[in-house]
Nucleic acid binder design. Sequence first.
DNA 1: ACAATAGTGTCTGTTAGACACTATGCC
DNA 2: GGCATAGTGTCTAACAGACACTATTGT
Lengths: 243, 243
Amino acid sequence: MKDRSSPTPIVCTVDVVLLTLRESVLQVLLLRREQAPFEGAWALPGGFVHADEDADTEASAARVLQSKVGIASPYLEQLATFSGLARDPRGWSIAVTYCALVSHDALQAALAANIEGSVQSQSPSRARSHLQLFDVAALPQLPFDHARIVEAAVARVRGKSLYSSLPVFLCGPEFTLPQLQQTYEAVLGEAVNKVSFRRKMDELDMLEAVPGAVRGGAAHRPAQLYRLRPEYRRSLSLLARGL
Amino acid sequence: MKDRSSPTPIVCTVDVVLLTLRESVLQVLLLRREQAPFEGAWALPGGFVHADEDADTEASAARVLQSKVGIASPYLEQLATFSGLARDPRGWSIAVTYCALVSHDALQAALAANIEGSVQSQSPSRARSHLQLFDVAALPQLPFDHARIVEAAVARVRGKSLYSSLPVFLCGPEFTLPQLQQTYEAVLGEAVNKVSFRRKMDELDMLEAVPGAVRGGAAHRPAQLYRLRPEYRRSLSLLARGL
DNA sequence: ACAATAGTGTCTGTTAGACACTATGCC
DNA sequence: GGCATAGTGTCTAACAGACACTATTGT
């Protein structure tokens, strides 16, 4: 029984599935690859694990997000690890994948800062045109096993949304209940009962009304703005009986 | 921006949390380490990923289970990946962890075959005394971050048991409904309603009665034996509304 | 006043659990 | 027959969804 480290080198990478909601459609951020293999193809933002600078693979994922997208996602969850000889032409590889959820506004702001910053400084180095959102139901051909990874991320997000507060991370810091409900509906892909939804949100005791703030401007009654209570900013709230 | 593989080598391992139920108590199989680091300590069965022989890390986990425990678990699920500099004194490491569920009978049979086989052949090489079950609530001091890994496995199994057929993998191939209910109760740590439980199992339509077979022998009415329908032997059945 | 959406009160069908009952083996 | 557990029928409380109603803005 050998006990040495494997002689065949193993490529260790992280890949990040950054999801956001644009006009009630779940979208994933892809990056045009600038290097071989698959140069020029749209792929998940990812990179090698840097053992000399990353505390762990979550730090690698955060570094990748910061350097390639210019954003620090408030929600970053480990998804799964994909491995094997077949997935990467460079050899036997391990990809630890993460799922990031970001509001569309925050993402657009980061991308805008990104393109400006790349004029003045050298980092982040990619222009906005190398980053693009794609509807998760209409992806281009993806290299490696990135299609499976996106699929796993979407399935995870859908599943968790059934019994947790996860979709709030797709909204901005303040949002109305109708907005949040639309977010749930977009993620789940089905309509949600308004009365039940509000009962659940009330039970969860996870939101607080922003005093006196409403979102108006339209020709109808304005809606109360809510935000996450501080204790739920970084962790999920779970429902006992789902939805 | 460097794009080469990290210069610092990364140790890639798999660790398996093998859980079973003994007298309604959830137990984890630990192995006494024969090599440094932590020689002599109880630890999760694990080993290096062998890029030259394993198709992927799940195959690595299956190989580790087979070679160190002498069992092929019918249920083997990826748990999470633990990584970083601090967890292993040998350096920056990645541990892809798996959770295996096995009936106590199957495990005992494997361990018995293991000890016999180790007399005649060279593989599996470990005697039974190097493998021992521990109550998950009363673990010895574990090396690396194995305590966290076991904790994650138990939490995952508890969580999934609330809304899936997962606990059936802790029973043998045939079992009675009261047995299965006890299994759920042991995993969840709380009593479940008999009528509701049977309604759910009926809805799931996942079990089939073994014709004419009952488990008797006691001074009371014998119970009907059931087994998993073939289509659910390797996949979970999910409940819409939990428990 | 009207349109349009926010937010609530209430009714009803469904579901989960409590309880009690019957069923069937062994002694 | 007695005992112990298997298995079921049924009542009730809790819950989720449907619907209708009121509330509040801009035009």
